[in-house]
Design a protein around this nucleic acid. Structure first.
Lengths: 349, 349
DNA sequence: ACTAATATTGTGCACGTACACATAGTAAGT
DNA sequence: ACTTACTATGTGTACGTGCACAATATTAGT
């Protein structure tokens, strides 16, 4: 075990000077600084995190800025589960987590939460920047030295520590491949995009179409839009229209967690054998329809892992001062009736 | 922050006495003991792990008992990558890892490593108990207080701390579903089991057959055995025979990591369009054949995660004294050309 | 050369714990 | 009463670090 004492001895100075070099506190002559830095390298000194934490007895308060848990069919609750799990594991390391939930359909609500976040003097931040522009504004106001991580979606040209999430374009391509496996060579396909527009999610549609284009498959693919705030009967009407227009419809690809709305209609008309459904996210309703074979395949973004990792990485950065990769890509998980049980977690928070 | 000082004050004794109660060192009158224990509960005292570790400056040496890295087409190397990753992350916590690699085809080699393990006075053990009986013997000789975790496969009736792995039966069922998606309704299927017999791996075959039985699908499924220690030309001969016998063969399911041997033959005969291949594990050769579409689907057991978690859990048990779940099931990951990149890790050990 | 100001370096303490050691209290044996 | 042999309790130190403060060295201004 190499301590600052050892490097003080080797570089023939006091531990105080060593300390100043390590923490870049200045008031050290450049000669001495070089000597000490050399000694540190020579002896491969690494600080003893136990002594450090004991002395500092620093408590870390981490903030999480994300949508309200119930939104997107409780998708966000999954992320919160992972976050809490990490929080629990890191309790002994004096990590405290504070949630700030905004309404994802209200920029005002986002701004309000932002100012709360900025007032709270946190040591690190985990952010779901689904409102691109307001989130970008926020990043400009976050003090230099407090690290923040994005999850779910990414924002370019920001000084984020890292991003944790999935490649939406690639996941769309994979959905294309899976759909192709499920339907006949000449079956028709409908893609249902749920609005309002979301750059991140639209890429799923593009990837899906791209897969068929790349392989010059001739299936007819129609894209339909549906506004989430419309009435539920509206989506039923939309699907009815889709089904009626196209008697050879064999597959529906839903680009977000609201897949179960489509499944509900399909089941009500007993079309589940004829029309295959591929969608996103293991929210409760989707899982139910997957289990009774109305939905055929769900693609998971591993929200639990995203949340868990987000907190773990902030801890590693703040406490252990580890280097963090620039992007942490989640696997594109293919979930079916047969393997779903291993993608769900017992909710024991 | 509650310290032993606080509970000393509350129970009107010195910190030395408190310490004796906490560590059950005796030499405390029963009255005093009760008082102190009451105070600990009252103030909800939890020891400061930083101070504790600093004082003890205890180094934990963890042993890993597993096959040689190159075996099973370097499958075990993946696990080792995860183990090393965890080791690196926990370096600051004074965790050292020592590997003990045995030859999975030699019980003698296993026993030799066992005695080395037992001599090494380790603080925890991570074991791949693929040799069931010898492994069971080992567990009887591991001292009570040193925890051990199984990964890859499990052994019942042992005092293991936990098991990390995948359900082989369920993964076989999933492979069945996937195969069904890939082939025609009347296509024939060959299952290639690689010997020597392995309880854990045979369950994959059973699950696969079960899927077709459960759904009363009428595809013809033939099971073939192949001995791993036979000559490579033998497997080519075997597959040639399989293909020749059955002109309607559309799918081959290989129950372990040697899938690439089959793929190699199929590619050499340009049969990859006609015959779909599903196999296991993202070893280098398999990945190559997956990327050029000779292998259609690989099921991953997440060996990296298994290794990583194994070490992390031992750390949590030993250092943080956390409770550990009885079983940690890995997801059954479906990997195709389109999503493989997110299941591989940059080898930067 | 002597002071003042500043740049550079050294020292001491505290964080909470574990454990060795010192001290006080109690009972038994002479 | 006085040693002996315990049991029961208190005290002091070190672990490695971070930082306040003390101490020393260097430079500039007169």
């Amino acid at each position: 075990m190499i301590t600052i004492k050892d490097i003080a001895k080797l570089s023939d100075v006091s531990i105080g000077t060593v300390d100043r070099v390590i923490h870049k506190r200045g008031f050290v002559s450049s000669d001495t600084k070089k000597k000490v830095e050399w000694a540190i390298k020579e002896l491969k000194y690494t600080p003893n995190i136990y002594a450090r934490q004991l002395k500092l007895s620093k408590k870390y308060k981490l903030g999480v800025l994300m949508p309200e848990l119930h939104q997107d069919a409780y998708y966000w609750q999954e992320a919160a589960i992972g976050i809490c799990k990490a929080g629990k594991e890191l309790e002994a390391h004096k990590i405290k987590i504070k949630f700030f939930h905004f309404d994802r359909y209200s920029e005002d609500s986002f701004y309000i939460k932002c100012s709360q976040v900025l007032k709270e003097n946190l040591d690190g931040l985990l952010i779901a920047p689904i409102l691109s522009n307001p989130s970008k504004e926020l990043t400009c106001r976050i003090p230099e030295k407090i690290p923040y991580i994005f999850f779910d979606s990414d924002l370019p040209h920001t000084k984020r520590l890292t991003f944790i999430g999935q490649d939406p374009y690639k996941s769309g391509m994979l959905a294309g491949r899976l759909m192709k496996m499920l339907i006949d060579d000449n079956g028709d396909i409908a893609v249902i995009r749920v609005l309002p527009e979301d750059y991140h999610i639209n890429l799923r549609t593009e990837g899906f179409q791209r897969y068929f284009a790349d392989h010059t498959y001739m299936n007819n693919i129609q894209v339909y839009n549906w506004h989430e705030n419309e009435d539920l009967s509206d989506i039923n009407a939309l699907i009815e229209e889709i089904v009626n227009i196209n008697s050879n419809l064999q597959g529906i690809f839903v680009t977000n967690a609201l897949t179960y709305l489509v499944a509900s209609y399909i089941k009500s008309k007993n079309l589940e054998k004829k029309i295959k459904i591929i969608g996103y996210d293991l929210v409760k309703e989707n899982v139910a329809y997957l289990k009774n074979s109305v939905i055929d395949i769900l693609i998971s973004q591993s929200p639990i892992t995203q949340g868990y990792q987000g907190i773990q990485l902030l801890y590693r950065k703040l406490v252990l001062n580890h280097d963090i990769d620039d992007r942490i890509m989640m696997p594109i998980d293919i979930v079916m009736k047969e393997n779903i049980e291993y993608f769900q977690i017992d909710i024991d928070k």
